[in-house]
Design a protein around this nucleic acid. Structure first.
Lengths: 337, 337
DNA sequence: GTAAACCGTCGAAGCGCTTCGACGGAGGAC
DNA sequence: GTCCTCCGTCGAAGCGCTTCGACGGTTTAC
């Protein structure tokens, strides 16, 4: 293994000079830097991560806690993860994968052993048991998602309440008077997963504000679940003309089910969704949707974390992305019926 | 931060004794160990990962390279990842997440900086450009998937060729004479992704052996793609009665499409699949399938890696899991038609 | 009874890097 | 010309841990 002293000898400088050339923490003359870089290349030098971590008390690794629990849509999680990794790499950091299963002990472990410098936590519940820990930890963290009480924590998320409102608003604008929300699977609400609750709030508030009749329906993430909901809606709410879907897995099956039951989208039924744009745009009936900007959220989370690691004193605590609705083929004025 | 010397002082022993008590690499008297453990608990001691890595030249971290390319089924990837992480934790290791995008340079980087002790690589192509690097690397690795030339590499996978054969064999046993394989998206074959190719081989070989008419159809991983294939099969192969599906994303839409086109499963058409059991079993029509044992594969990969790290000299190079077919509701004798 | 083997513990060295203080020399201020 | 400052570099200390050799004190072997 080639080490920094080898490079130093080869370049005719001291090890500390090599270190400074690498980190840029002190000025190094143009010529010396060139020589050092040449030696590094020639010898194939790679600084030892452990040694670096020990000496600098920075591991350059972030922890990412991914949820595996039932009811969450895996591809979306993966999009977050990829975005976090990609962004972290831009800042010369790597990402350690933690499963939700490891729980608080896992967070404490990687933080206390200095395995990681900072943490990103997904799938936040309104009253998440990890919050006190995250506040107490000596390492910075960012949550993707908003708990009920977010003081002292840095959080990033789509403004799901506004997203729910926006969907309803759009349907209201098109003249719809009776709307339903098809939401996440029941267990997600039982756990009080923050984003799911917020959508319900926004949905209900906007419907009330507009004097619309509204109802909320948790939905299993399976085609069978979708079909069941569709049948139930058709039976119990014959006047229904607008549906908001907040459940990636059932978006397509649900539309299929409606059509098989004789409700054409958007002629008889307007559908809006909250989900990643690619999903909404790629369906047989492209769906009018509020984008869930996974790439941007992951990127923001990682960037905020880097700023905190840099000691930036005014990193915003709350970053709520405003919802953006894209009109597609699944919505139409109610008159069109 | 509390360090090993603090623990040593508190317990009235030397730091090395604490270290040995922790690692078990030398015998420590029952009583001393107790005292040390008590001190550790009382002080809340956590060994510093970087210091440990430096002194022991072991980081206790594995790299996992996950594919993000189009055509691969994300939930399956996630299942592998979770299984690897869970198993690694059993052996007191953590997992660093690398994206395919980082490529060979990424592998080299984490290996050469000693950030990780070993690597697990997924989504192996028949002629994978990373193979020479993995062979040359000073750190052990395990592939999930088999390249064309696997000598000198440790590989784990389902025996996809046998899996393809088994599906056909089953259909043959039921009296079917004309079969089709609905496979992965075209780009997967273009890349020569190993497992996809092997299924085709097995499928074709078994069909030929049984004197069956057979055809292979790559399929986009979208419901629209599924529908297109269904229509095409119906048009071009009216005698078709058996289908093998090797494409998680289209399994359900494909069956739906067939039924909408008037082909009842399994009355008119028998369907078998190669996919995770949960998927096959959870569909509206539970599908007879060869299990893709993601949990077991991930676990095996991690375990083989741990053995290699332990210096076990006879770790098997090739681990090919025999396919296991589970009969469900999607297959019936041809006579039933 | 003596030698050999072993057990449990200690002290010191060292893993490869970063960082701090120091220092010679060049440039600027006056 | 002198003094001060700044630039570029060096040497040494030290980050927190593991590991090696050594060393008394017991056992065991014969």
């Amino acid at each position: 293994m080639v080490k920094i002293t080898d490079v130093a000898r080869h370049a005719g400088v001291s090890p500390s000079t090599v270190s400074y050339a690498l980190s840029g923490k002190r000025p190094i003359s143009e010529e010396t830097r060139r020589r050092i870089e040449a030696s590094i290349r020639e010898l194939g030098y790679r600084p030892h991560a452990g040694a670096r971590a020990l000496a600098s008390s920075r591991s350059n690794v972030l922890a990412l806690v991914v949820p595996l629990r039932s009811g969450i849509h895996v591809p979306v999680v993966m999009q977050f993860a990829v975005s976090v990794v990609t962004t972290a790499r831009r800042y010369d950091h790597d990402v350690l994968l933690l499963t939700q299963e490891e729980g608080e002990e896992g967070l404490r472990r990687v933080a206390d052993t200095a395995l990681v410098d900072a943490l990103i936590v997904m799938d936040v519940q309104l009253h998440d048991p990890r919050l006190p820990l995250l506040r107490a930890l000596e390492r910075p963290s960012v949550l993707i998602g908003f708990p009920a009480a977010a003081e002292g924590l840095t959080c990033v998320d789509l403004d799901f309440k506004a997203a729910g409102e926006l969907c309803v608003q759009r349907l209201a604008g098109l003249g719809h008077r009776v709307v339903a929300l098809v939401g996440s699977p029941p267990e997600v609400y039982v756990r009080e997963t923050a984003f799911a609750q917020r959508v319900v709030q926004g949905f209900t508030a906007a419907a009330d504000r507009n004097g619309m009749a509204s109802s909320v329906h948790p939905c299993e993430a399976t085609p069978a679940g979708a079909r069941r909901i569709a049948e139930q809606l058709l039976r119990d709410q014959p006047a229904l003309t607008g549906v908001v879907v907040h459940n990636e897995a059932v978006l397509e099956p649900l539309i299929d089910a409606f059509e098989q039951l004789g409700l054409r989208v958007p002629v008889d039924l307007s559908v809006t969704a909250i989900c990643p744009d690619e999903l909404a745009a790629g369906l047989r009936v492209p769906v009018t949707s509020v984008a869930l900007p996974t790439a941007e959220l992951g990127e923001r989370a990682a960037e905020l974390l880097m700023r905190k690691l840099d000691g930036d004193p005014d990193v915003p605590e709350a970053t709520l992305l405003a919802p953006r609705l894209t009109e597609r083929a699944s919505t139409a004025p109610r008159e069109a019926r």
